[in-house]
Design a binder for these strands. Structure first.
Lengths: 214, 214
DNA sequence: TAGATTGTTAATCGATTAACAATC
DNA sequence: TAGATTGTTAATCGATTAACAATC
């Protein structure tokens, strides 16, 4: 009985299920019960069954889950069988690293363009793509119609560029700028990544640890 | 009435408060009420007051919060007034980008060493630090005593290197390898960053959007 | 069939929101 | 003092866990 709206708690766990199931496939595991999977993932069997049943009954009573089948089903839910087109804006250190480090093709997406306003790096090759002037964004988007934009730009420019990209048809933003992107247009998806915040979560833990030890 | 243990929901919001308060300081704002702050952050006044009161009463009835003071208090809680020492393991694209992109000094930390097993990049300068052979890790840690390790290494090596680092006195891991680090030793803090998972959360949203539109 | 394990409902737990007395 | 806004308790909401009938 698939639900209408899925809570973000569940959604954030899906990629992790997908990752672990991928590992199990590599290891040659063909079936797994929710209990076994929960032990590997430091989760609970109940939670896994609840999560999966948001999308449908992928298991079989008395047997468990077929690993290959479940992996594929979750992949479909996440959209890795799509062929989205992504562009990357801002080819500084982080932008280049993302372009080279993330295997977009494994995740239902092709990176088809990289843009920067800094003329000194135009033409440079990153992940097989030449860095283009930001001024070419409009014509590129109008002809290639990418759905996803990866933003690796300074926070001052983020909101302005994002608004421009929405008008060019971008539907999803993976935002690495140190700015909480807010899109007032509906029907736009935003994933803000704050690496600095993540680091501070770590130092909080460390600080707490040290305070406790004293 | 500060609490003993703070829920991770609260902790994960602290860096965001810290960031927004930093922005307010830049803008010259000296005081703010929980209601005003909640509007800027797309949060609720109740949640902000609850969160802050986990750590103490930083506000004043009838007045609100002193922005500078609150920023500093949250900074202390997060540990930005400390002087932690961090090392980075794995100076590939992502490792280099993290070294260059994250302002560790703003976050109570100095990056003091970069290590890689690839001899062809030894001696290269990244963020003012020369890349050292991974074989020098032991002697370096024993003399410099860093507390934090940033792992930008392939997943196959992650667990092994992490265990080694724990024995060398590392207390906190910022882990970018595509692997869920599990430390069996107690009193070790781990922050796993899964950029691939974050991207899949985005494609989930996009896929749902497109399915709905049809 | 008997055993195992799911799908699903019910119970519990925790987090968020609302309300208000305390107080600046 | 009166108005504003906190700190904190109570109410609500949602997420997780437990339990178990359904069923492979």
């Amino acid at each position: 009985m698939p639900k209408e709206v899925i809570s973000s708690s569940v959604i954030k766990r899906l990629p992790r299920y997908y990752r672990f199931l991928g590992e199990l496939i590599k290891q040659g595991v063909t079936r797994i019960s929710s209990r076994e999977l929960s032990e590997k993932m430091c989760s609970t069997a109940s939670q896994i069954r609840q999560d999966l049943n948001c999308f449908g009954g992928f298991g079989q009573q008395g047997y468990g889950y077929n690993v290959l089948e479940l992996h594929e089903e979750i992949g479909k839910i996440l959209g890795v069988d799509r062929n989205y087109k992504a562009i990357l804006i801002g080819a500084g250190n982080l932008g280049k690293a993302i372009a080279l480090h993330i295997d977009f093709s494994k995740r239902g997406c092709s990176l088809i363009g990289i843009f920067d306003s800094n003329s000194s790096i135009w033409g440079q090759d990153v992940a097989g793509i030449k860095i283009s002037p930001a001024s070419e964004l409009d014509s590129f988007c109008l002809s290639e119609k990418p759905e996803i934009a990866v933003l690796c730009i300074p926070k001052q420019n983020a909101q302005q560029i994002a608004n421009r990209l929405v008008n060019l048809g971008i539907k999803a933003f993976w935002n690495f700028s140190h700015y909480d992107l807010r899109i007032d247009y509906k029907e736009i998806v935003v994933e803000n990544v704050h690496l600095g915040d993540s680091f501070l979560t770590l130092t909080y833990g460390l600080t707490t640890l040290i305070n406790k030890a004293q």
